[in-house]
Amino acid sequence: MNTLQICLWGLQIGAIYGLIALAFVLVYKATKVINFAQGSIVMLTIYLCHAVISLGTFPIWAGLLLSAGVAIGLGLAINRLFMHPLVGQPLIAPVMVTIALLGLIQGLCIMVWGDIGGCRNFDPLGISAGALHIGQIVLLKPHTLGFIVTLVLFGLCALFFKYAKLGLGMRATAEDHQVAKVLGVPVMFVFAAVWALATLISLVAGFILGSMNGLELGIWQIGIKAIAVAIIGGLDSIPGALIAGLMVGVLEQLAGAYIDPYIGGGLMDVFPLIIMCIIIYFRPYGLFGLERIERV
């Protein structure tokens, strides 16, 4: 295996980390809630998507649209049931609730889908086995699709936050809830919209992950890596999530290929956390996190 191949794979895996980190960052930016349940939400959306698609024989695009609707509904429900009642309370309360959600969703998935369990084939697009050959380099189809979709989604997000009215309202809310409210931004609506957006992005990420590796009840663990990625990028930076995701993906794959053989393996999975510790030591706000502006 040559280094270029490893780097390309790393970029593709990293894009998925970036995508999940994006969902995490969106929620954090607008509501300041650190969503520890992010990984399990990815898992739940993908199992729900699987359930929706195997409901009947409708065209794949209809299944995907329906799944998207379900994911948005899930986000709205989480916001309404768990987050909304805690608005105005100390931030630790909703954060603890997300930890509870993490366990709750895992249990729910095991309860409902425990019998189909791990490694069930999930390949609605029929791309899991495919690969692109470019000279010596092999690119797996679901990974490549994930990479492209991620770039597109980040691009759309950037446009949305720059030009759309709701995007601007979200940024205002992220800065200062009180000021946003006094200017007429519907803060509660923004919270709901952010959760809906985050679960929708989780669905996309989950869909790609499922197409890569099939369904498994351990998918939620990717959330831990994604949180590390989000922290490296700077908790509230959207471009930071992408760049940190790609960086972590590449470094992780390189560590797996070049260091793991000497130490007997295992470094690859903890590598993002090691990078996080190092980066936070030098840059407490992460690579691209906003520092509080203080004029001297």
Binding site: K165, L168, G169, R171, A172, E175, L183, G184, V185, R292
Partner: peptide
């Protein structure tokens, strides 16, 4: 002077016209 610090001046104004 509660500005939205990280937004530009014009973006601040646009938020003011949200309604």
């Amino acid at each position: 002077r509660r500005t939205l610090e990280h937004l530009t001046v014009e973006e601040n104004l646009r938020v003011g016209g949200y309604k």
